[in-house]
């Protein structure tokens, strides 16, 4: 079995807050894995530790078999990342942002076909700030895909988008998944997770609360839909009474 992401026993403390208390995550090639949990459960910390932008207090990480800090340059030539609420330079145009992003990588795929595939052809000269929310998020996916990555991280991709734009973004990701891309994403929307993810990792208070397929998550509860199952799984009151 080939694991593209291997994180073992990650711990991270900020002052008195234990953000991660021994979390592990393994992702196989071609899988789409959703990291779920309430705000403050440790999702962003987990992603940032895995990416090496935050240093875990303990734990081991390998991405594509490489150490995210020590082999940063080689690793991130093959990994696309989209942080939560990414902002870009003021007044930058779509074409300029694509060109600039491509310049950061040793090898990239041409931006034009990707932009066309994501419905952004003809927007090259438009300022990024003038795009609609959905167009912006699709542009950020395009940027993450430019280096022809084997693995992409997408943090809260569709937060703040309307229903139509979210469906558009899902469609784009499903196409990429079909082409074999490995995706790790965080989301607050269970319909999205159901539509896209093979497996989920539910975090609660910095610990792994559930890990398994979407079907397993649903089957572990008396409910039929992931949203209800998720709420049931992460319900504090039920836990306390049990």
């Amino acid at each position: 079995m080939e694991y593209i992401v291997e994180a073992q026993g990650l711990r991270k403390t900020y002052g008195a807050v234990q953000a991660l208390r021994g979390v592990s995550l393994r992702v196989q090639r071609g899988e789409v894995v959703g990291v779920l949990g309430a705000n403050g459960a440790g999702k962003s910390t987990l992603i940032e530790c895995i990416l090496g932008v935050r240093k875990p207090d303990a734990g081991e990480i390998r991405l594509l078999g490489m150490h995210p800090e020590r082999e940063r340059k080689r690793l991130f030539a093959q990994v696309g990342v989209q942080f939560q609420q990414s902002a870009v330079q003021e007044r930058i145009r779509v074409g300029e942002l694509c060109q600039m992003t491509a310049a950061l990588y040793p090898q990239t795929t041409p931006a034009a076909p990707l932009l066309a595939q994501f419905g952004l052809a003809g927007k090259l000269r438009q300022q990024v700030s003038d795009l609609s929310g959905g167009e912006r998020q699709k542009l950020f996916i395009v940027l993450a895909l430019l280096p022809m990555p084997q693995l992409v991280f997408l943090d809260e991709l569709t937060t703040g988008l309307d229903a139509r734009a979210r469906r558009d973004v899902w469609q784009c990701l499903k196409q990429q998944k079909a082409q074999g891309l490995t995706i790790v994403l965080t989301s607050h929307f269970m319909d999205e997770v159901e539509a896209l993810c093979d497996r989920v990792l539910i975090l609660r208070h910095g610990q792994t609360h559930f890990e398994g397929t979407v079907q397993q998550a649903v089957a572990a509860t008396p409910h039929q839909r992931l949203e209800d199952a998720y709420l049931w799984l992460t319900d504090d009151e039920r836990e306390d009474n049990a």
Binding site: V81, S86, A87
Partner: peptide, 17 residues
């Protein structure tokens, strides 16, 4: 400070540059 506030500098950490 603008590029740090907008996390543009942070984004560069997850690229080969």
């Amino acid at each position: 400070s603008d590029y740090r506030g907008k996390k543009i500098l942070k984004r560069f950490w997850v690229t080969p540059t």
